[in-house]
């Protein structure tokens, strides 16, 4: 190196702590909770938050979709979208439940395969989701059809499969060990485990860094030596696995599997991620944000129920919140573009 360059070596400071982008979403959560708390005292004459039972029901309600939302988060960060997760839940619920039935039930789907160890339905379910995810990813990466279309196809196909599997009949009577996967607060613990693991993966592993890079600029990612196609397959495979996990938990929790299970979960999961600040244009977002988005989702639903607001209004307002979240995201982008 020539002298001039060496002379002027000055230290570029290492990253300093900045305000995390999740902070504003957290403030929204606090604001919404506080509003319900005040309305609670005014309208119902009781506290909204100081009620452990309500809180645990609330968190249970959202954590199943939350598991999916974690998978969807990394997909959206990579610049994609997944519409198939709800249908994968349905398909996995059916498959895993059909391998988890007790022998005392006379009309089991596979009478020869009853009373199996719990690992069998779990592995079968996860493999179903993995397969769906790999197909999604391969379609997107190698045929270059848009993620929206590829996963829309999977959404319809997987749902069709779930209905065909037992010709529409529900499957019930699981073994106790399978049922335990959905009992009490187990779903919440599963969610927490998944969330922490994905947080670490996105932040500290090459997998995570590649995911952000691909979402930020796929062309640059390719030129930088990243095998973009292979990585996309991985991302959708992981999302498929997590949808399957959610499917197993749903079936276990309901003690039954139906072909229609998980309907609209894909949209709720996307909504949680978007509310949590994951940008639909890719490259931005975090597990922490999605988790807060998930809790906001839960608080709103539970808050409306608490205030005895009709379920129809709930859905309408939910829709409005999702749109508001996307509008905020778009607004942020605009402000950013103006600045640069």
């Amino acid at each position: 190196m020539t002298e001039a360059v060496v002379q002027s070596v000055q230290a570029v400071p290492k990253p300093t702590r900045r305000l995390p982008p999740e902070l504003s979403i957290l403030l929204v959560l606090i604001g919404i909770s506080a509003t319900f708390e005040i309305l609670g005292w005014l309208v119902q004459g009781q506290s909204f938050l100081a009620n452990p039972q309500r809180l645990s029901i609330m968190i249970l309600q959202v954590s199943v979709v939350g598991i999916i939302a974690i998978g969807v988060t990394q997909i959206i960060i990579s610049g994609g979208i997944d519409l198939s997760s709800g249908s994968i839940v349905g398909a996995t619920a059916m498959i895993s439940m059909s391998l988890a039935q007790v022998s005392t039930y006379s009309r089991a789907v596979y009478p020869a395969l009853t009373d199996m160890p719990v690992i069998v339905p779990i592995v079968a379910g996860l493999l179903t989701g993995l397969l769906c995810g790999v197909v999604n990813g391969a379609l997107i990466a190698y045929t270059r059809i848009p993620p929206f279309i590829a996963t829309l196809g999977m959404m319809v196909t997987a749902r069709g499969f779930a209905k065909w599997y037992t010709k529409g009949q529900p499957i019930s009577f699981p073994t106790d060990s399978f049922a335990a996967l959905g009992s009490k607060l187990t779903p919440v613990f599963i969610f927490l485990f998944v969330a922490v693991a994905m947080h670490v993966v996105l932040r500290y592993t090459r997998y995570g860094k590649f995911t952000y890079a691909i979402g930020a600029n796929p062309q640059a990612a390719r030129v930088t030596g990243i095998n973009v196609e292979r990585h996309i397959v991985k991302i959708y495979a992981v999302a498929g696995l997590l949808s399957a996990l959610a499917g197993i938990v749903v079936a276990a929790r309901g003690l039954t599997a139906q072909a229609g299970m998980g309907q609209m979960y894909e949209l709720d999961a996307i909504a949680m991620a978007v509310i949590g600040g994951v940008s639909l244009s890719g490259g931005r977002g975090s597990v922490l944000g999605t988790t807060i988005g998930m809790i906001i989702f839960g608080v709103v639903v539970s808050g409306f129920t608490f205030l005895r607001i009709d379920a129809y209004y709930q859905e309408m307002i939910k829709g409005a919140i999702i749109v508001a979240a996307v509008v905020t995201d778009v607004h942020r982008q605009k402000k950013r573009q103006k600045k640069s």
Binding site: K209, Y212, A216, A220, V223, G225, I226, R284, S340
Partner: peptide
């Protein structure tokens, strides 16, 4: 178009090529 990850930070931009081949253990 094909160089920077504009919305990511400097570190992510500098390290992207390096970590495809080195300084990664068990992912």
């Amino acid at each position: 178009e094909t160089g920077c990850f504009l919305i990511l930070d400097c570190l992510a931009n500098i390290q992207s090529a390096l970590i495809t081949g080195a300084h990664v253990r068990a992912g």
